[in-house]
């Protein structure tokens, strides 16, 4: 089981790094509106690489998870907000993500600390991101979508799938920690497979978005 998990985990890291390099290469060829998402992919690949390196050297890599949770939350929130702004939403996402950012920082520094897995922040981040996703779906229902928005919709779908599984894992993290590693690994395998699947989905979206007109703005649609 562990070998299988290592295989999947290594595949995910390799794919994540390759995808990050690909994102750097196509950064200027992609429409500006997706640049923030590419930064997210590049950041994901870099964190996966560095975390794996620390793990191999038997060094504590939890600090990276703290930083990753914060950056992931900020980037995804701003990315989704940029797209939703055009639809003139009644609720401004900024109202939700600024207090959340403060909580994530406080949790990392004072509540759970940097040497413990930041399950509170990760769970909160996932809950809020899921909320953004559902709000996005609601706004997209009655919105005439251009190619850019169709890509955006699929990105949000990927984020939604990834974070719904992350949330379940985070909410059950206290229980998971108390069971034997043989059982724990099954949970991580499922999470990793879902993560790999969503990365593949993002890859397809980015490749397809290369055909979009580069100068199309969100307002111009």
């Amino acid at each position: 089981m562990e070998a299988f998990f290592n295989g999947i985990a290594n595949t995910t890291v390799v794919f994540s790094v390759v995808f990050a390099i690909f994102s750097i290469l196509v950064y200027n060829k992609t429409n500006k509106v997706f640049h923030l998402f590419l930064v997210y992919i590049i950041m994901g690949g870099s964190f996966d690489l560095v975390s794996t390196f620390f793990f191999e050297k038997k060094m504590n890599n939890l600090k990276f998870f703290h930083l990753y949770t914060l950056l992931e939350f900020v980037i995804l929130s701003v990315f989704i907000r940029n797209f939703l702004e055009v639809m003139k939403p009644k609720f401004d996402l900024q109202k939700a993500y600024l207090p959340a950012v403060v909580f994530i920082i406080i949790n990392s520094l004072f509540i759970q600390g940097l040497d413990i897995y930041n399950s509170y922040s990760a769970a909160l981040s996932s809950i809020l991101i899921l909320g953004y996703c559902i709000y996005t779906f609601y706004l997209l229902l009655d919105f005439q979508m251009s190619k850019i928005y169709i890509s955006f919709k699929w990105i949000v779908i990927g984020v939604f799938i990834n974070h719904i599984v992350t949330l379940i894992v985070m909410l059950s993290s206290n229980v998971v920690l108390n069971i034997s590693s043989d059982y724990r690994i099954i949970i991580w395998i499922i999470k990793t497979i879902v993560g790999l699947f969503t990365k593949l989905l993002f890859f397809i979206i980015i490749v397809k978005s290369l055909n979009h007109p580069k100068k199309h703005s969100l307002n111009g649609r």
């Binding site: 059950s172 998971v176 043989d182 059982y183 949970i187």
Partner: peptide
């Protein structure tokens, strides 16, 4: 451990 994992897997599948 078996039942906990089963519950979690079911939760993940339901959420998926």
């Amino acid at each position: 451990g078996d039942s906990i994992v089963l519950y979690i897997i079911i939760s993940i599948l339901v959420s998926l």
